[in-house]
Design a protein around this nucleic acid. Structure first.
Length: 461
DNA sequence: GGAACTCGCCAC
DNA sequence: AAACGTGGCGAGTTCC
């Protein structure tokens, strides 16, 4: 096959070749780190961690732990923790690990009521932030500049990966961790930090493959909304209250639209099923209040759904409707795509990559979508980098997170860069890849000059 | 003393 | 029938 590459495969190779060069330039440009801040916060966290360890020893959990392990006591050891909780304190974990051991993850710990457990939870989070992130930044930076690396040859899906440190998993959703870690990360001196990302790009990319008319309508017609419709169906409502509508993110505020999106639609796309969705949705929505002041719980009860098992039945019906009626063409595509893989032993992505090897059904149906979605961003990233240099502009590439490109923006070039992003990411990309069958939309975040990544705000692009 | 494994947790 | 996809990485543990 390599001796006689098709033109598609040459194109695929070229995408990675040019992409690698563009990413290498971003690596060289680097990211500015506030080293003193990192050291200060590391010391601060270190003190807190030491204090919590001391306090833990005064709690029931700590006392039992110390009695059992003495000098070998290690509050970072989940093996020891599991022994103490599940053998010594006779608690039962609500979850099992992959290897069928009782899990000790954050969710399990949150549900356990033992003196000291809250301190342990704080201890674990602080350790993660200190050891993984702050120390990672300090270790990898050179003269205050971080040259994190991107690879296009690691991920089985032909997505990218990032190392030393991983630029793609700095905390974002947990606001405390977000401020702590992203507060250390700056644009180059005199620049702003700009991030431009594709909205729901995996949903759009799915349409290139399955061409489901209902999904295409959702993605194309701004008057429609898949997540809103699913929220209405899941929570048996006629309309959504304003605060439960749309994608506006108010951290801390429970929003039915976001709930349907993250608790049902995406898990279903990735291959999860109604039992998990029902459990998670129920837990997540327990404190939601509707506009008329009625707790969502009471509303559901009035609709005949007062228990988890009733809700699970309901979500099962919603799931059946989701795949058999609403997105039946998508569902059919998954089956055909899988059968073709079984017959041929490989499948080809629209971007020209051939995926071979032993894969399960979910991998076979997810990989082409994940990989292709990333390739759109990669092409745009490469093109943006090329045009910035060709025009002799000062703005330069900083990094990439699967569906988002990050730049050091030279303030005077803002309008031109915005225009280039719109042009490349939504228009030129459709000339480059003729199989794109729905409009692509972009969103942007921006910091002030010399301001930390944590201070980023949405901006119209 | 290092390789390999497990678990947990961060991102999309 | 069964039931969440892709990564990196730190810490603890076990094995050689």
């Amino acid at each position: 096959m390599l001796g006689n590459p098709t033109s598609m495969m040459r194109e695929a190779y070229s995408l990675l070749h040019e992409g690698t060069l563009a990413l290498a330039e971003a690596e060289m440009n680097g990211i500015r780190i506030d080293v003193e801040y990192c050291e200060k916060m590391k010391r601060k966290l270190g003190k807190r961690i030491a204090l919590w360890e001391k306090q833990l020893l005064q709690t029931k959990l700590g006392k039992v732990w110390q009695k059992e392990y003495g000098k070998k006591l290690n509050f970072s050891s989940d093996t020891q923790l599991a022994d103490i909780l599940f053998n010594k304190l006779n608690i039962k974990s609500k979850k099992l690990t992959k290897k069928n051991n009782q899990a000790t993850d954050a969710e399990v710990l949150e549900g356990i009521n033992v003196d000291g457990i809250e301190i342990l939870i704080k201890f674990k989070k602080a350790n993660k932030n200190k050891n993984t992130y702050l120390e990672g930044l300090l270790r990898e930076q050179v003269d205050g500049i971080l040259h994190t690396m991107f690879s296009l040859v690691m991920a089985i899906t032909y997505r990218s990966s990032s190392q030393h440190p991983n630029f793609q998993n700095f905390p974002k959703r947990d606001l405390e961790s977000m401020h702590l870690i992203r507060g250390a990360i700056y644009p180059l001196k005199g620049f702003q930090n700009l991030g431009v990302d594709y909205s729901s790009v995996e949903v759009a990319t799915g349409c290139f493959y399955h061409k489901d008319p209902t999904m295409i309508k959702y993605v194309t017609d701004p008057k429609t909304s898949m997540h809103r419709d699913m929220a209405l169906q899941l929570f048996i409502l006629e309309t959504l209250d304003k605060k439960h509508e749309g994608t506006e993110e108010n951290p801390g505020e429970l929003n039915l639209y976001q709930g349907a999106k993250n608790g049902f639609v995406f898990p279903e796309f990735y291959g999860d099923y109604f039992v998990h969705c029902a459990e998670n949705l129920m837990k997540w929505a327990k404190d939601v209040i509707l506009k008329n002041g009625m707790p969502l719980k009471d509303h559901m009860k009035a609709e005949g759904i007062g228990t988890l098992s009733k809700f699970t039945e309901h979500v099962e019906a919603v799931e059946t409707d989701f795949w058999e009626n609403r997105f039946k063409v998508y569902n059919k595509w998954k089956e055909i795509w899988w059968q073709e893989y079984l017959e041929k032993g490989y499948f080809d992505m629209l971007t020209g990559f051939r995926c071979q090897g032993l894969m399960n059904r979910k991998q076979v149906c997810n990989s082409p979508i994940q990989g292709t979605a990333f390739h759109l961003l990669l092409w745009a990233f490469t093109e943006m980098n090329r045009q910035l240099k060709a025009k002799g502009m000062k703005t330069r590439m900083m990094g990439q997170i699967h569906d988002e490109m990050l730049m050091h923006l030279w303030p005077e070039e803002k309008e031109e860069v915005f225009q280039m992003c719109r042009q490349i990411m939504t228009i030129e990309i459709r000339q480059r890849f003729s199989w794109i069958n729905v409009p692509l939309n972009i969103e942007a975040d921006l910091t002030d000059v010399d301001s930390a990544w944590s201070k980023k705000k949405g901006v119209k692009i």
